[in-house]
């Protein structure tokens, strides 16, 4: 069963905003409170919002758990590779080798109190993104699978 039209509409309208907010939290992990885990949790909870408002079958037809598994694995593999990529450069694992190296997130950060710039942090924003992808996939799968467990007739 699904909830009433009002709740469904509100959930549908809220979903993209939840998602962009989650992505905002992920992307600004190194500047404001939040990061991969929190942002991923926000997006996953937004999916749970859809599940609550609509029928399970409707949602699971669109949010496929197989795709979420791929998200999760890719996120984790990305994190792993980012973390251990320093070994290829001969540095210890988890070394933030991108910091001030002249690549994407290389801007040097202003010390002390500052308004914050997105382009700092070296590997960190990328790691945040990977973790966000992983957490998003993981929490969504947990919800979907547990719901599927309630559907099955125990007999």
């Amino acid at each position: 069963m699904r909830m009433t039209k009002v709740v469904r509409t509100v959930a549908d309208l809220l979903y993209p905003f939840c998602m962009i907010f989650g992505l905002y939290v992920v992307a600004h992990g190194h500047l404001t409170p939040g990061g991969g885990f929190q942002g991923g949790a926000v997006i996953a909870t937004a999916t749970a919002l859809l599940i609550a408002a609509h029928r399970y079958d409707d949602v699971s037809a669109r949010v496929k758990s197989a795709r979420m598994k791929v998200f999760e694995s890719v996120g984790l593999l990305g994190f792993l590779i980012l973390g251990f990529s320093a070994i290829i450069l001969g540095q210890p694992a988890f070394r933030n080798w991108m910091l001030s190296r002249g690549s994407l997130f290389n801007d040097s950060v202003a010390f002390g109190v500052n308004p914050g710039a997105l382009t700092t942090g070296g590997l960190m924003p990328l790691m945040n993104l990977a973790v966000g992808l992983e957490v998003l996939g993981a929490l969504t799968i947990i919800t979907l699978y547990m719901l599927s467990g309630t559907k099955e007739d125990p007999s």
Binding site: L31, G35, G83, L99, D107, V109, T120, E134, A138
Partner: peptide
Amino acid sequence: QEQTGANNIVTGVLFDYRGLDTLIEATVLF
């Protein structure tokens, strides 16, 4: 701020100083 390039020190600790912890924590979720 200098060593990790992050304004949020918690994120700095989470992903740089204690990066392995975070990886393993994500592994727990996995």
